[in-house]
Design a protein around this nucleic acid. Sequence first.
DNA 1: CGTTTTTGACCCGCGC
DNA 2: GCGCGGGTCAAAAACG
Length: 311
Amino acid sequence: MAYSSFLDISLDLNTNPFDRNFPENFPKKEVNVSTSADLERKCLVKEESANELREELNRVNSENKKLTEMLATVWENYYALHHHLEKLQSRNSPEIDEQPTKKRKQDPDDFLLGFPVGLSSGKTDNSSSNEDHHHHHQHEQKNQLLPCKRPVTDSFNKAKVSTVYVPADSTDTSLTVKDGYQWRKYGQKVTRDNPSPRAYFRCSFAPSCPVKKKVQRSAEDPSLLVATYEGTHNHLGPNASEGDATSQVGTSTVTLDLVHGGHRLALEKNERGTMQDVLVQQMASSLTKDSKFTAALAAAISGRLMEQART
DNA sequence: CGTTTTTGACCCGCGC
DNA sequence: GCGCGGGTCAAAAACG
């Protein structure tokens, strides 16, 4: 998908355009002293253009502020929704009976950092593992029972297993789910109630990283891949060159690539912090998936650009 | 030549 | 105890 990029706009949401890069925004022209009238005219022109630039800067500044507010609102909504979802999940979880069954030996090092729930949110179009078909539920339940003893019904820690649904070309037989991490396949099995095989992956950082994942095409909807993650990465995610639904810790760059009608817009925001960071990433990727939002944003920005080009 | 994938064998828990 | 099924191992093959 090599879209040519006609436009590349970086929107700095940490709005303060006056403190950096500012001098470069003004055209620094070498002014040769000539006649005083000439000089006066040049000064006037310069002042005019400076005023124009200042106006534009103010416009961009207020636009940045608006976008920031918008982002904050979206964040709030997202957070509320996320919170609600967690509540619902924790309310449902006691129904999943907690048998102390353990099929196989446990992972030697049991990292209980809690898997970012939202891994699902970024990658999928319908990512709610709750409202799922019966068949799946049974299947997953069986799978999810194996690694966790599930001592209490809390929703945030010890949630080692998460499921991700990824839309995939039904002709594509490679059971790969791009999530930014690197995996090594260690097995493949044909399972009973699903015509397509299940692939088993370990994080390439194994054995130091205990994370495993299983990928299998959904039995009901062959256009969906079901990825089941077990455990938590104990290392930084790789720079997510092939996916952006990772849970990276620390400084990160969230890149929203909005491809719309040949216009490619990049929105970058640097942020520090872990939970915030993850949330921002999740939000970014969900927004990216939202065609309405991307279309609206692209239209708004390109409209603004056209308007500015005209003036 | 080192790394990854493939694939049949093996292991283990579970139900009968 | 036995068979079934899911998960893992590991030798061989494939790959870069």
